[in-house]
Design a protein around this nucleic acid. Structure first.
Lengths: 255, 255
DNA sequence: CGTCACTTTGAGGCTAGTCAACGGCGGTGG
DNA sequence: CCACCGCCGTTGACTAGCCTCAAAGTGACG
């Protein structure tokens, strides 16, 4: 198969994603909220390098140890970042879906802390760091947005670093994905295989599978080929607990 | 004992820490490197609220769920951030030692994702967010520094989120602490009890203790009352692997 | 219709957690 | 000055959750 990830080559599903407008981009996203700063979007868009298409199995977007040269805004598809352990196994650090910024964890050091490849046919916008720096100097609000996004990533990474059971992790992961991925009337299609989910959540693929089955047996969801349907979102939230950003539980702590 | 954490009340050890100059502060830190921007340090220092003294067991620096109002630069001592799980157990998200910035993971959301208390008698500089924002508008390089620091925190949090053994975690933690804490000719004094270390590394306190003993039995370190001495730093690095930012191992991956 | 990657299921083992008990140290009060 | 108490660290025995290994089932695709 030739290297072809143009929108035409996408499935219907991905075509829908590709059509998502640039408001998805966290850098541009809050424009509407902030009103003003009308020239900002144009300034950001104007410094982007040409968009890049990525297919799974193709060349990585970047590789661990490289010098960081750009930030990447996911426009369609799904990107994963990972490192390899001593046995050559992937340790997936994060999945990035349309609207996410890839590369924020490299801004502090001189080296990429991970490699990045596409999980499915994907498109990313490339923002060269030199341009980003220049734009920051002109428009400090860009820095604030990047900072806010990095901060959110940090908060969720710190959460994932905690000690939670397989069910808690899976529940939180599914809820998160259903928030971030477009669902076609309730049917959620997970772009990554269970092996990747496990590698991200620190679970064996067998455990991922078994946990899904358990959830299904309890009627929390219906698993389908290459996807699933969440039935009892509330109960999943209860299982995920703190891992899913809901704060109702905190009232208990006062007691 | 009254609320008194003035330098005079500190032990010799903490007094030494308190004397650390403001170059520790990551916001000011790279001044020397960057040369130029001479007015920057003064601008930063000028907008700081009065320094705060904290004692363990006293009122938290901030509490989970609060609206973020400031960033905090640790000047002396040790601060930990944590949340409580359903059973009321602490889950320690991070330790902050002199030179660290606390609160970066709150910049993206409207709520503090954790509470913060002192582990030992500590002092922090308070940088009100309103002032920070104002200063960012004037001096974009501040945003870049905060971004770099947040990015580093993110990279290390993503690392800690991975699947590693008790020994790997402990080795990485000890190496990190020996980098960040002042050591008196090789003698490293850990400010936090083993229970806290375990809560941070997702290990039972018994496991922390056993792992330390194992390291000692192998001659990697000598554990002392309230501290330890690292003997074979190289071997500890080998155990920590990717968790400690050393990249030598990567050569193996090429094969 | 065969291949291949992914998913599913079962059996067994290991890491680290839990539970329980003890020793040491520092503070506190008689 | 010493007995007491509480926190912390230490050690052992047992347990549980999850991983490993193995093998069969399923779907996508050439």
């Amino acid at each position: 198969m030739p290297f072809d990830a143009s929108p035409e080559a996408f499935s219907d599903f991905h075509a829908a994603q590709a059509l998502a407008q640039c408001e998805l981009c966290p850098v541009q996203g809050c424009m509407a909220r902030q009103g003003a700063a009308s020239g900002f979007a144009a300034a950001w868009a104007g410094m982007l390098a040409p968009r890049v298409a990525l297919m799974p199995g193709e060349k990585p977007l970047f590789t661990v140890g490289e010098r960081p040269t750009a930030l990447y805004s996911v426009r369609a598809g799904c990107i994963k970042t990972f490192t390899l352990d001593a046995d050559g196994n992937e340790r997936i650090r994060a999945f990035y879906t349309p609207g996410d910024l890839v590369g924020l964890d490299a801004l502090g050091g001189g080296r990429m802390p991970a490699s990045a490849v596409a999980v499915v046919a994907s498109q990313v916008c490339v923002a060269p760091l030199a341009n980003v720096r220049r734009l920051i100097a002109q428009r400090p609000e860009l820095a604030e947005r990047l900072l806010a996004q990095t901060s959110r990533d940090l908060a969720s990474a710190l959460c994932l670093a905690g000690d939670y059971t397989a069910e808690q992790r899976m529940a939180a992961f599914l809820l998160q994905m259903s928030d971030r991925l477009p669902s076609l009337n309730g049917h959620l299609r997970l772009p990554m295989p269970q092996r990747d989910i496990g590698s991200h959540l620190r679970l064996a693929t067998e455990t991922v599978c078994r946990t899904l089955k358990t959830f299904q047996r309890r009627g929390l969801l219906i698993s389908e080929t290459q996807g699933l349907q969440i039935v009892k979102r509330g109960e999943l939230r209860g299982i995920a607990g703190v891992l899913y950003g809901v704060r109702e539980v905190e009232l208990k702590f006062a007691a």
